[in-house]
Design a protein around this nucleic acid. Structure first.
Lengths: 167, 167
DNA sequence: CTTGGAATGTCAACAAGGCTGACGTATCCT
DNA sequence: AGGATACGTCAGCCTTGTTGACATTCCAAG
């Protein structure tokens, strides 16, 4: 009870005021805006939205993934995803291949053109992430990742970790 | 070029692989989902959306703020904000008072009912933030905030900082 | 071999919440 | 008096989420 708010002493329990927590909440809000700002500009030019970006990102991350798997990662309905996926396939950014073992499944891959757009989007986002990391320093990066992981829903944390390790 | 990817040495320049940056990007994506999940559930019951939450949050944060100011913070058009604000006023969660010095301005306050909902939403979000902070530790919290601030657009960072200090 | 269920695709309708453009009103300032 | 500012509102459009219903394809169990 005698502790002060401003400085965290580093080893004992955290003294967390509502004010501090609210600051964290607002930091998340503003930071997420910055986080999406650069890709959004590119997407606008091409006539796509964030939903397309997410699809491209995770198809790049896990080439050959099925629609169902993508659905689970993105957490939207198949109708929502399908609308986005259809335009990407029509525009020649994504390829949908019938599964070998299970021919009901569709395996998704980026075409060269799709990979190119994904790369541009990712480069923009990584650029901001890199400069944020650089200006915050290595220890801050560790903390950043730690807090983010703890903030995820458990299911998503597992999915995230398995994505990180698995492949 | 000889360095390894996994461990950051802690004092020299960061060695940032695209992989590490991509992990950060995905962490942001999944964490933001968790971040909004709890309030979203409450909002759904009441028939509101995230836009209402944001309005309530910043009116709570800066009571008596003007519409224009809120517009700048939220980064949406007045038409978008107005739609949300109108329902909040109609439902008796927000009060809109004509300005004293400048009668063109409307100053916004939460009613008791509005404050109650804001409090419930904030409590849910702070709860998750608190447990994330706790499980990540004090140093992680510092790093988390540092990286987030560096990730904001400069204008937003200034706004954020002035909000933090100003009051 | 038949059939149930799983995976996928598709159509339709709807809602939230962004956006632009245009217009009106009240108020302030020069 | 006239221009600028703050706010509200109408109309229409887009993206992206939702439900519900239904067809197709195919694996697997009976």
């Amino acid at each position: 009870m005698a502790d002060q708010a401003g400085h965290s002493s580093g080893e004992d329990l955290l003294f967390l005021t509502d004010e501090q927590l609210r600051k964290g909440i607002e930091a998340m809000f503003f930071a997420y805006r910055g986080f999406t700002a650069d890709p959004d500009r590119i997407l606008l030019e091409k006539g796509y939205g964030r939903a397309h970006h997410r699809a491209l990102h995770f198809i790049h991350r896990a080439p050959g993934t099925t629609v169902n798997n993508l659905l689970a990662i993105l957490g939207v309905t198949k109708q929502s995803l399908n609308r986005v996926l259809r335009t990407l396939v029509e525009d020649g950014l994504v390829e949908s291949q019938v599964g070998q073992q299970d021919r009901r499944e569709r395996h998704l891959h980026l075409t060269q053109e799709g990979a190119q757009l994904e790369s541009a989007l990712s480069a923009a986002q990584r650029g901001r992430m890199r400069s944020a990391y650089r200006s915050a320093g290595p220890e801050a990066v560790q903390g950043f990742r730690k807090v983010l992981e703890a903030m995820m829903d458990p299911e998503m944390r597992n999915r995230y970790i398995s994505i990180m390790e698995g492949r």
